[in-house]
Design a protein around this nucleic acid. Structure first.
Length: 285
DNA sequence: AATTACTGCAACCGCTGGAAG
DNA sequence: GCTTCCAGCGGTTGCAGTAAT
C-alpha cells in the first residue's frame, strides 16, 4: 500500500491539492462508491487523504473514511437494531455515556454513527415524551429499572418462541399475579435501593451470554468486558437465568407500579403512566 | 391533491490526541 | 520540546421519505 502512496507522500501536497481542486461534498454517487470500494479492496484502509487522491476521488480523506466505515465496509450491518442490540446500547451508554465508537466496538457491524443516530432519534425521543432530560437520574432510572428489564423480557420471550419452547413458564400466568419479568426485576432492584443507597450494580456484559441470546458479540478488546463476567453479574439476584431460561418466574415480586409510586409519577407528566407509555408499540421499538 | 410537519439517516464540521519530523 | 499532519471522535446539519392535516 505504501508503494501506491509514495508518489504523493508530501503532506504539503495534501493540503495544497485539497485547496486547489474542487472538493466534492454531499451524497456519494454509485461511481464514487465503486471507485472507493475497488481501491480499498485492493490496497486496504488507511492514509485516507492518499486514498482519496489515488482512487481518483474529489473527496476529502475524511469523507472517504466515513463513507467506507459507515456504508461500504463489507461487514457493515444494516437494518433494524435488534432487541439485544438495543439492550446492549442502553447498558453500554449507561456506563460510558456518549462514547459511540466504544459502544460500537461491542456491536459488530454497527457503526458509531448508527448508534448515535439511534440514541438521538429513539432514546432522546423517549426522554422528551417523559418530559425529562436524557441525562437526568429519573431517565436513567427509567432505563435501568423499567426499559432494560422490559427489553430483557421481550428478548426472553423471543428466545423461547424461536427455540420452540413454551413461553408459559416465562410469565406467571397460572396465578392471579400479573407480575412480569420486568416487574420482578424492577421490584428487586428497586427494593435494594430503599435503604437509601444508589443501586450499585453496574451490569457487565458477557460475550458468551450475549451469544446465547444471539447478540453475536465479537471478542471484546476492552478488558472491562472480558469473558469472565456473566449475566449473574449483569443482573442481580440470579437474573441471569432469564436469559439462559432457568429463571424462576414464579418468584413473588412487586409490580412495576412500585417504581412509579416511588417517583410519585411527577416525572411522567402526571397523567401519563409509564405502563401506557411502554405498551405503546410505537414508542421505543 | 397539496401542503406542512415530522422522522431517520447520511454526511459534514470542528476539535482532540497521537505520531512523526 | 515544538510544530505539523492525520485519523478518529462526537456534535450538528441537511435532506429525502413519510405521515398528518
Amino acid at each position: 500500500m505504501e508503494a501506491h502512496m509514495g508518489v504523493f507522500s508530501s503532506s504539503t501536497y495534501d493540503q495544497q491539492s485539497e485547496e486547489e481542486m474542487d472538493v466534492r461534498k454531499g451524497p456519494w454517487t454509485v461511481e464514487e462508491d465503486s471507485l472507493l470500494m475497488n481501491y480499498v479492496t485492493i490496497h486496504g484502509e488507511g492514509r485516507w487523504n492518499s486514498v482519496a487522491r489515488c482512487a481518483g476521488l474529489k473527496r476529502t480523506g475524511k469523507s472517504c473514511r466515513l463513507r467506507w466505515l459507515n456504508y461500504l465496509r463489507p461487514d457493515v450491518r444494516r437494518g433494524n437494531i435488534s432487541l439485544q442490540e438495543q439492550l446492549m446500547i442502553l447498558e453500554l451508554h449507561s456506563r460510558w455515556g456518549n462514547r459511540w465508537s466504544k459502544i460500537a466496538q461491542h456491536l459488530p457491524g454497527r457503526t458509531d454513527n448508527e448508534i448515535k443516530n439511534y440514541w438521538r432519534t429513539r432514546v432522546q425521543k423517549q426522554a422528551k415524551q417523559l418530559k425529562c432530560d436524557v441525562n437526568s437520574k429519573q431517565f436513567r432510572d427509567a432505563m435501568r429499572y423499567v426499559w432494560m428489564p422490559r427489553l430483557l423480557e421481550r428478548i426472553q420471550a423471543t428466545t423461547h418462541s424461536s427455540t420452540g419452547q413454551p413461553t408459559s413458564n416465562v410469565t406467571t400466568t397460572t396465578t392471579e399475579s400479573t407480575s412480569t419479568h420486568a416487574d420482578i426485576y424492577t421490584s428487586q432492584v428497586y427494593n435494594s435501593t430503599e435503604s437509601g443507597s444508589e443501586p450499585s450494580f453496574m451490569p457487565e456484559l458477557s460475550v458468551a451470554s450475549w451469544d446465547s441470546v444471539d447478540a453475536h458479540v465479537s471478542p471484546a478488546s476492552d478488558t472491562n468486558l472480558d469473558n469472565s463476567q456473566n449475566w449473574s453479574e449483569f443482573y442481580p439476584d440470579n437474573m441471569s437465568g432469564c436469559v439462559s431460561g432457568s429463571w424462576d418466574w414464579s418468584k413473588p415480586g412487586l409490580d412495576i407500579h412500585s417504581f412509579e409510586t416511588q417517583n410519585n409519577n411527577e416525572w411522567l407528566g402526571g397523567d401519563e403512566s409509564l405502563e401506557s407509555l411502554w405498551n405503546d408499540e410505537n414508542v421505543w421499538f
